[in-house]
């Protein structure tokens, strides 16, 4: 297992280098002078020359690339043009907000999706199977923004059960330590506030988790149908294993590889920032951070945001690969 882990981690190095090159090229791929783009058309020639010098734009491209590499390796992601603050400092809370929402959405998606898929496979062609797969089909086809708006209309406006906007009641802000409000409120022993934080998570969480849930349900059903027809399932039953364990232990562990792949991909996509969901629910996440940077042509933020998201994506893939080996021991022997 250790050798497999090291091999997988070593494979990250070329991937990360490749990513850094692409991200580095973004600013240079834009037609025109980056300094003019950053400062705007009305900038004075002096200001442009000054920015050229400070950004190192007069150096050859490989010198620029290596100094860029040196900066990001040291944790310097550049400075936002809009706010004039270090990006590495201001990106944290946005990431935390998106992370918290993603975890919540994916837990919802995995719990419902995997169980619905299992039940559908176990009772194939039953009314449960048909209903669940119809809901899954609607779930993957439904636009997320529409679902979000409908949720707000029904549960926030009409029934008044849940808040529709933000991470927490704005009149009682969370004293942020980690940026993860669930964790922060627990640490502060503010359990009333924890409840409020959870209430704020429900609607955006469901809106964002519905598509992953539907995909997971369909993949689980397919994998479990195949696994349940296997001969080792008959063996397990012939040993006197309880049907619940036959399904959730013997079959599920075998069927889990494709499910895990989907979970990894969907988590990566949600962490990349769901701009629509975050906008509808006023969620101060990475999606909205990048969206506002794009609107303001804040190139350093765009560049670093993409880099951070790409690194997160790669890390999730690493975790998924390591989990593959846990679920199917044949993988690490290849």
């Amino acid at each position: 297992m250790l050798a497999y882990t090291l091999r997988r981690v070593a494979m990250l190095v070329p991937v990360l280098l490749g990513m850094s090159i692409i991200v580095f090229m973004i600013i240079h791929a834009i037609p025109g002078d980056p300094a003019v783009i950053i400062l705007g058309q009305k900038a004075t020639p002096e200001a442009i020359a000054e920015l050229h010098a400070s950004l190192g734009l007069n150096d050859p491209w490989y010198v620029q690339y290596f100094s860029y590499l040196k900066n990001i390796a040291g944790g310097d992601l550049g400075t936002s043009i809009q706010t004039k603050t270090a990006i590495s400092k201001e990106i944290g809370p946005y990431l935390a907000a998106t992370f918290e929402l993603t975890v919540f959405s994916m837990l919802f998606a995995i719990f419902i999706g995997v169980n619905a898929g299992i039940l559908s496979a176990w009772r194939r062609n039953s009314w449960f199977d048909y209903t669940a797969m119809l809901i899954a089909l609607i779930g993957v086809s439904m636009p997320v923004f529409w679902l979000g708006l409908m949720e707000q209309w029904l549960f926030a406006q009409h029934l008044n059960w849940l808040p529709s906007i933000g991470r927490v009641n704005a009149r009682d802000p969370v004293e942020s330590i980690s940026g993860f409000y669930v964790l922060d409120t627990i640490l502060a022993r503010r359990f009333d506030q924890l409840e409020d934080v959870f209430k704020h998570l429900v609607l955006p969480g469901i809106a964002m988790g519905t598509v992953p849930m539907a995909i997971i349900a369909r993949i689980t059903r397919a994998g479990m149908s195949e696994a349940m027809a296997s001969e080792y399932i008959r063996t397990a039953r012939s040993k006197g294993v309880h049907e619940f364990m036959v399904v959730y232990k013997h079959a599920l562990k075998n069927a889990f590889i494709p499910i895990l792949t989907v979970i990894g991909l969907q988590t990566g996509m949600l962490l990349g920032g769901a701009v629509l969901t975050e906008t509808i629910f006023g969620w101060p996440g990475i999606g909205r951070y990048l969206y506002s940077a794009i609107s303001a042509r804040d190139y350093p933020v765009i560049q670093s945001g993409i880099l951070v998201i790409a690194v997160i994506f790669v890390c999730i893939n690493l975790v998924v690969d390591l989990l593959y080996a846990y679920f199917d021991p044949r993988i690490k022997h290849r």
């Binding site: 296997s230 001969e231 080792y232 008959r234 063996t235 397990a236 039953r237 012939s238 040993k239 006197g240 294993v241 013997h250 562990k253 075998n254 679920f327 199917d328 021991p329 044949r330």
Partner: peptide, 20 residues
Amino acid sequence: RGNEMSMIFQEPMTSLNPVF
């Protein structure tokens, strides 16, 4: 099953669970 009476099958290649 598996206690008082038990069974072995034709295909040893597929009758064992590959992930345990």
